[in-house]
Design a binder for these strands. Structure first.
Lengths: 359, 359
DNA sequence: CTGAAAGCGCTAACAT
DNA sequence: ATGTTAGCGCTTTCAG
C-alpha cells in the first residue's frame, strides 16, 4: 500500500511555505481554451457534453483538458447556474446500523449520478437542540435533501424546508407533502408474526420500539392486526428503546411468565437482549421460547442461537431515495411513496412450542 | 411532529410550477447593502465578523440581514476566496461500527467549527475500482480531507493527494508525510492479553484480522510481545476477516483443542463468532474458555455471556482528526501523530482457568 | 457550429 | 470606518 503526495501537473517548483494553504488554483476553462485555440465557450460546451460541437474541435478540447489536467470548478458553476450537483443528507444520528447502511447506499447512488453528498447534522452540538434546518439549508447549497428520521428525537422539531427544495423522507408516515421511501414495516411485522403462528404458537408477545417512533408504531400495529386476524387477542406492547439493554429488561419480565413461548422483538438488538434474559433465566431457545428479531444485523446469524429475523433492505431504501430525489430535481414527478419489501430469515431461534407448554 | 414546507420570507406568491426547481435565489449582499444604506463591502465585513465596523452601522446591517432573511452564498465565497469551509471524508466503506462512530464525531466537530462535511466514496461504484481520488478531490472543493482506512481494501491503491491539501489519516502506520490519528492498538492488545494472563491463563490464542490490515497487524504484534515478555512463546495467529462468520470458523478449530483456555479476538464480531463455536462445542464460557474482544460494540454487553472487551474511543478519534486538520488548514503545524488510549471492559466472558485444564 | 459579452455574489486591494 | 474597483471561473444570452 502506498499513500503519497503527488505534485500538481502544472507545478514543478517547490512549495510556497505560505501560511494559508490551498493557494494553488488549477487550470481554468480559459487556459484550456487558449491551449486548444478555441473560445472558453466551446470548452464549456464540451465540458457539459452538449451536442453541438464538431468532432475535431471536441477532440482538440479534450486533449487540451487532458494535457493541463483540467477539472471544472464547482463553485463557479454553482454560482452561475444556481445548481450544485450536491445533495444533502439530514440526519440525527449516524450510529445505527440501518442509518449507516442507508447512508452508504445514498453516497454510492449519488456519486454514480455525479452528485456529491453533504452531511447536515441537525442537532446543534453546542445546544443539543434541533436548530434552524431551514437556514442551514439555504446556506448549504444543495439541490435536494434526503431526511433520515429518528422519530423519537423529533417530538418538538419542526423541519421547515424551503418550498422549492426537492426532498425525500426516509420514514413511514412523514406526513404532508413529501416523497417517502421506507421499508415496508407492515409486511415485515406480519412476516414475523405469521412465522411464529405457523410454527404453532398460540400467542406472540411483542417487544416494541419507543412509542414515538413511527417504524415502531407500524410494526406493532401490524403484529396486532396479524394476531387478530388469527382470532387472537394481542397482549400489551412492551416498549423498549431499541437498545439490547431494554430488550434484556423486558425479556426478564417476559421470561418469568411460563405462558410466554413466542416473542417478536422490533429490532435485533432488543431480540439479543431478550435472548440474554432467557439464558439467564434458564429458558432454552428455541425449545422453551422462540424469538424473532427485525433488521438482520450482520451479526444476527452468529448470535446464540442464530437469530431468526426480518431482513430490511437498507441498500434499496438508500438507492431508491436518491432515484426519487433525482427525478424531483430534474423536474419530473416521481412515485410519491415507495415501499421496500422485507424477507424472513429463518435461523435457529424459532421452533414449534414444546408440547403442553403454551397456554 | 410536524414537517412542513415554509415559504420564503420574501416570497408571498404561489409556486412557479416551473420545470427546473431552485430558480429562487435569496437576497444578496447587494440587497442587504441597499436596505441598510451601506456598501456591500461593509456587509461583507459584518458577515465575516471583522472588527472595523462601527457599532451602529453593524446593527443596521444586521437588521437588514434579518429582515431580508439573508444567507451568505458559499459558492460565491468559495469562488472568490479559494476556501470552502468544507472538509472531505474519504472512506471505503461506511458499514462498520467504528467508521460510522468516527464519521459521526467528525461531522459534529466539523459542523461546530462551521465546516460542512462532504463524503467522498473512493471506490468507483461502476467499476468497483479505486479511482482517481486525486481528480475527485480537485473537483470537490474541500479545504482538507480525513481519510478513514480499510487497509485490506487498499492493497493496490495509490491515494495521491494534491501536495498542498491538508490531510489526516485515521489508521496506524499510514506512512509518509501525513498526520495520523488512531486508537492505540498496541496498548489495547496489551490490555487484553495481560488481563487473560493475570487471570492465570498460561497461554493466549489470538484470532487476528486480515493480514493486510494495519490495525490487525499491530494488535497481533502487541499480543505476541506481551506474551513473550511473560516468557510465553506465542502460537500462530489465526487470521479471520473481521466477520463473525470467520470467528466462528476459527473458534470451531480452537475449541476442539482442550488446551485452549483463553482467546483474544481482534474484534467483537469475531469474538461473537468464537463464542457461538464454543456454545456449539459445549465448551462453557468462561469456565472452560475465556474470550476477550476488541471495539466494545453497543451490543457486546448483551452477548451471551456479556463480552469482556477493549473499548475504542471512536468519538475521540473523530474529534481529534478534525482538530488536527483544522490546525493544518489554519497553517499551524499540529502534533503529527495522535494516539487515543483504550479501556478494558471486564464483563462475564473471562475468568480464571479451570484447575488442571490448561497446559 | 462557434464566439463575444455580461454577470452570478462575493472578497482582496486599494482608495478615501 | 467605509466605499470603489476588479475579478474569481463559469454559464446564459445573443450574434454571427
Amino acid at each position: 500500500m502506498t499513500l503519497s503526495h503527488s505534485s500538481f501537473p502544472d507545478l514543478g517548483d517547490g512549495n510556497a511555505a505560505s501560511h494559508h494553504a490551498r493557494t494553488t488554483r488549477g487550470p481554468s476553462m480559459a487556459d484550456v481554451a487558449r491551449e486548444a485555440g478555441v473560445s472558453s465557450q466551446t470548452v464549456s460546451r464540451v465540458a457539459n457534453g452538449l451536442s453541438n460541437v464538431e468532432e475535431t474541435t471536441k477532440k482538440r478540447v479534450l486533449d487540451a483538458m487532458q494535457k493541463l489536467g483540467y477539472r471544472p470548478n464547482r463553485a463557479a458553476r454553482a454560482l452561475k447556474s444556481g445548481r450544485f450537483k450536491s445533495i444533502g443528507v439530514i440526519m440525527f444520528t449516524l450510529s445505527t446500523f440501518g442509518n449507516m447502511r442507508t447512508l452508504d447506499a445514498i453516497a454510492t447512488a449519488a456519486s454514480r449520478a455525479g452528485y456529491s453528498v453533504t452531511l447536515i447534522p441537525l442537532t446543534d452540538p453546542t445546544t443539543g437542540k434541533v436548530s434552524g434546518a431551514y437556514h442551514q439549508l439555504r446556506e448549504q447549497q444543495v439541490d435536494g435533501v434526503v431526511i433520515i428520521f429518528e422519530a423519537h428525537l423529533l417530538d418538538h422539531a419542526d423541519i421547515a424546508l424551503p418550498e422549492d427544495l426537492p426532498a425525500v423522507v426516509i420514514d413511514s408516515n412523514a406526513g404532508s407533502g413529501y416523497s417517502v421511501v421506507d421499508t415496508d414495516q407492515h409486511q415485515g411485522a406480519r412476516l414475523a408474526t405469521e412465522h411464529l403462528l405457523e410454527l404453532g404458537h398460540r400467542q406472540v408477545w411483542h417487544i416494541g420500539g419507543p412509542d414515538s417512533s413511527f417504524s415502531a408504531l407500524h410494526r406493532a400495529e401490524s403484529w396486532k392486526q396479524t394476531l387478530e386476524e388469527a382470532g387472537i387477542k394481542a397482549p400489551e406492547v412492551l416498549h423498549g428503546d431499541w437498545s439490547a439493554e431494554s430488550g434484556y429488561r423486558i425479556g426478564l419480565e417476559l421470561g418469568k411468565n411460563p405462558a410466554v413461548s413466542a416473542i417478536f422483538a422490533a429490532n435485533d438488538q432488543m431480540a439479543l437482549g431478550a435472548m440474554r434474559a432467557m439464558h439467564e433465566l434458564g429458558r432454552a431457545i428455541p425449545e422453551d421460547v422462540s424469538i424473532v428479531g427485525f433488521d438482520d444485523l450482520e451479526e444476527a446469524a452468529s448470535f446464540w442461537p442464530p437469530l431468526t429475523t426480518i431482513r430490511q433492505d437498507f441498500h434499496a431504501v438508500g438507492r431508491l431515495s436518491i432515484e426519487n430525489l433525482l427525478h424531483q430535481i430534474a423536474g419530473d414527478t416521481p412515485a410519491r411513496d415507495v415501499s421496500v419489501p422485507t424477507r424472513l430469515m429463518v435461523r435457529k431461534s424459532t421452533a414449534p412450542p414444546a408440547p403442553g407448554r403454551s397456554v
